[in-house]
Nucleic acid binder design. Sequence first.
RNA 1: GGGCGAUUAGCUCAGUUGGUUAGAGCGUUCCCCUCACACGGGAGAGGUCCAAGGUUCGAGUCCUUGAUCGCCCACCA
Length: 943
Amino acid sequence: MIPELPLTTRHSPLATSFGRKLTPPATAPYSTKFTPMTREIPKAYEPQEIEHKWAQAWYQQQLFRADPQTPGEMFSIVIPPPNVTGSLHIGHMLDHTEIDILTRWHRMRGHNALFLPGTDHASISTQRVVVRQLAAQGIDYRALGREEFEKRVWHWKEESGGEITRQMVAIGDSCDWTRERFTMDPGLSNAVMEVFVRLYEEGLIYRGRYIVNWCPSCLTAISDLETIHQERDGKLWYFRYPVIGTTEHLVIATTRPETMLGDTAVAVHPDDERYRHLVGKKVLLPLMNREIPVIADSFVDREFGTGAVKITPAHDPNDFEAGKRHNLPEIDVMSEDGHMSAAAGAYAGLDRFAARKRVVEDLTKLGLVERVEPHRHAVGTCDRCKTDVEPRLSKQWFVKMKPLAAPAIRVVEDGEILITPENRRTEYLNWMNNIRDWCISRQLWWGLQIPAWHCRDCGGITVARTTPAKCQACGSAHIERDPDVLDTWFSAALWPFSTMGWPEETADLKRYYPTTLLITGYDILFFWVARMIVMGLKFTGKVPFRTVYLHSLVLNAEGVKMSKSKGTGIDPIELNKRFGTDAMRFTLASMAAPGTDIILSDDRLLGSRAFANKIWNAARFLFVNLEKAEASGVTLEELAGPEIRAAAPYRRGAQLELADRWIFSRLAHSVAEVNAALKEYRFHEAAHVVYHFFWGEFCDWYIEWVKPRLTSGSREELLAAWRNLFAVFESALRLLHPLMPFLTEELWHRLPQRAGAKSIALQRFPEIPATLLDPAAEKEMALLQEIIAAARNARADLKLDAKRKVAGDFFAAGDETRTLVQSHLDPILRLASLSTLHILPPGAGRLDPSQGAVRASTGFELRIPFGEAVDLKTEVAKLSKERDRLARDIESKTRRLAEESFRSKAPAEIVKGLETTLQERRAEHHQISERLAQLEKALQLRR
RNA sequence: GGGCGAUUAGCUCAGUUGGUUAGAGCGUUCCCCUCACACGGGAGAGGUCCAAGGUUCGAGUCCUUGAUCGCCCACCA
């Protein structure tokens, strides 16, 4: 069953975002009968209405539902689940655009394609959002109690998750909505418990008291990855600790004075001559008046500071280790919220930074501050709230990563998983090879609670899939569930298989797992990708995906990563309104060159919108002219046949006209290029190819070329013209569909269609037979285009009225060229705005440039005669420039060819090619020089 | 402290394995509101490919060094 989209939340989906609600359409938006095409088509493409109509239709009809029973090649991809912290931002749009392009492409190529949607509970982030909301209402979340708080978050989740779903529908994600998942769904949470228990039973999950990264603002432990190191200008304080029983002082250096209150030793290097006599003695810890030992430990760096370091086992990971080695007491002088604890004596209750200041002041008064130096160092901050992280001693749950990492390294090294781009693969391997244990417990309320129960009687831990009745160790019923929840990435790590029903052996799991591909941003390579590989291998014995494509990030105009909290994000809804989803998708795709980040600009979006409009108007042209063809007896049925979809050229007799041969050949090339580009995730290239084909070739040349054929001629001629035009256009729509799904769907339905034509998305991607590749046609067409361009160029330089048709002269020594021009005189005249083109006989010789502007290229010369008022000087300047350019080129080529080393070492074809080119250049140069001479003579005569 | 990426037209960026005159979009200049489209058509201008060395017959492309910008990783107090 497809879920109804909840429409009742006050956050109200499309009502606030995309302008309207999703309601079932009264009738299907496509015709169920043979479609008489809509003749009335607005002049400009207005995406809003159309996108909404199709988004809704696709969703309602479950158009992209995947069936494991369907045979054929499989393509499966799971979405990187967005956090339910609000709505999708522009960064997500890139994920979705790339995934959807590839999914649609595979589906159209006949593959059994699954795009599995879903969302992530995002433990810490979501909790923060709701806590802040409550605070805004004057509610302290702790006062609500855990249960009530969880209820509030679930409520928020329904809103946010619903909004995200609606956005995904609205931007045309071709997901299977029946398979939508959430990381806290019963099935997924079940998988999480299963994994936790198994890892615990194998000893790969353990609980222990260690120094962890603690956020005093979020009030939870966070992992190493969530700790962002920030370079900062700080200070290095030198403190004097009096050595007991002497008049000496031992000087230590520290960046964190406040932690000295918890010092339990001072360490020096065992080989350090300066301090050897002090080892074993005691120093008096100032302010606290505690006697602490001087110990020797080789972890001390003799070069740093004074070579003597204070040891605070409860507040520094190194000191913690040292403390363990030397059996030192651990004195925690801080509370969880970053204030000094009772153990800090007189400083209790002070904020840690206030305490720092006070400690320095007090020591200064005592004359125990030796000196202070500026010191640049890295400070850990919380990924979520940017608060300085406090290394804190606490009991947490960890995953032992080393044994799990080994296979995850192997599969990437072996190429069983392909990580692309290549440099990310290296990054992955480096990280995996230096992996450390993963702190997975979080002191939060929103999330998946750890399935462990503590015994109040014996202190034993019972880990179980379902709530146990008694303690596993002593049988006591006095057990309590561990209050902590799991790091949100723990459940995310299982996503590719938990979403498919694991640990059950479901049909989905068999058919769609391992997934084909993972597409996500490189910023979560370690957070997510690496851990999915680890967990996938551990629990399914298979890789979770065959290929990982890591795309760039979308940055704002300042080149900073988009962030909603910082207010630096671009609102995708705004973009959709202004440009349309298709334009946004196309823009993202066209900028998504692997390896470089994307800075989105209005200019590019405007360009894409213009492209959509261009296609719209090409279609409009077809539709408004079709009546004329129908009047001559061409029927819509004839334009809706399978030949259209097969892009089979319609030949009158055995002949296909040059323009048709050319456009089919170009189409075949374009399809091949798009396929090749998408295969290697070169979205920008695919976008460019389609853009150029549609606009630069189909619109600019083909349509213009065949225009007269569409409205006059015999029924047979009209049919040929229209069939070919439709075949190319229809194929081009399919070619474009993965990039611009809405526009193409709309136009496709406006084409004559057979009954029940549901969606272009379910049609085949164009497969153009290689026999349509026509190098001869491309060459001839290129020559004709060049001739037309030469005429236009000459016209423009003569500053002729663009509307005025003028006569031209044409000379070509080659018979073939003359024949070609003669047989395509009509389009040439039309496209170059010429009244006539006088083709001179081969014996006529060069065109006299004093009579007009001559433009020449390899094999031909074309002249537009000077009118009454002509600026010969401009013409001379133009030709001189061209002559100089040629001269430079000739010189460099001549020099190159004269080099013996080049001739002997370069491949023969390169040498030969260069020689040929050189000859051509010389000929051109000669012509231009001649022309210049004549022109200058003419100029003198005028004077 | 390690590692990585970037530097190409006014702007934003492409440029596949080294090969003949380095491309696109936007902007800009000139001409056109021609019966699909001014979100348009036509024609131009605009680049010592960050710098210096090196390899090569040949370098935007490969190597070395440097400069500038950015990113990732990292328990030296």
